[in-house]
Write a protein that binds this DNA or RNA. Sequence first.
DNA 1: ATCCTATCCTGTAGGC
DNA 2: TGCCTACAGGATAGGA
Length: 290
Amino acid sequence: MPELPEVETVRRNLEATVVGRTIVSVRLSGKKLRDPISRQLPLRLRGRRIESVKRHGKFLLIHLDQDLTLISHLGMSGRWLFFDDSPDAMSHVHARITFKDGTELWFQDPRRFGLMRVTPTSRLARDPAIADLGPDPVATPLRGEWLFERSRGARAPIKSFLLDQKRIAGIGNIYASEILHRAGVSPRRQAGALTADEWNAVAAEIAYVLRDAIDRMGTTFSMYRTLWNEPGTYGDQLLVYDRAGEPCRRCGGVIRRIVQGQRSTFYCPRCQSVRRGRRALVIARGQSGA
DNA sequence: ATCCTATCCTGTAGGC
DNA sequence: TGCCTACAGGATAGGA
């Protein structure tokens, strides 16, 4: 579910809500996440105070006192939910954090692809989950020139390149399609074959789309919710994602779905032609003929 | 190093 | 209604 804008929304929610609160207990469910939660985690978190909430890509970093950080990844279906009063039982809740004042923070994740662990803050950069991540494009706006240089020799399609968290941290399946559509670049192009101008366009749309999606609290299809169980509204802005067979909002052509790396990709073959040069030639011809 | 495939897990939508 | 298949916002191990 959650890509950078959704995780950033949850981060802001957490920052406004749980910073300053002190944990009195953590209860774990018996079920294993893909990366199991340590049984020691409740003991390590007990008595700790939340000092700040940061983010790198899709990872939430909840900093506590005594040099501890709670690393959290939402996977496909993870949610953090905050309650003033403990609600009735919910399914798939893997951790319940109770604060000193009686408020609660629950981690729910039906598909169990999420991750939660505690690590010393001073060694956070060496945590295997964090160590290999590329730059966060919101914290560090990416320049087209930098992407151009970094992509030389890359033979994977640009769509897969954008999803690679080692290259850029935070872009997921929805926003990769949206970014490429707005940039007018076909998802099938080899990343290493994009021109500097094309990378400039992609860099600009990475910044624009992520910012816009954050402003709208992300995209909700089914699972994703804010800390208060509200949906995000960026779904109204989607130009191609999940719109196969529907008309392109820019040119009226038909949006197509293809599969790349076992993930769906949506694009408009007319706006995003595979051969940019050919398209430019057609336009030039039309002008000379007029 | 890079790329591709299969896999982890549950829920839901759509076809019959 | 039920049964079946395909698919879903992600990351990663293992092999080419």
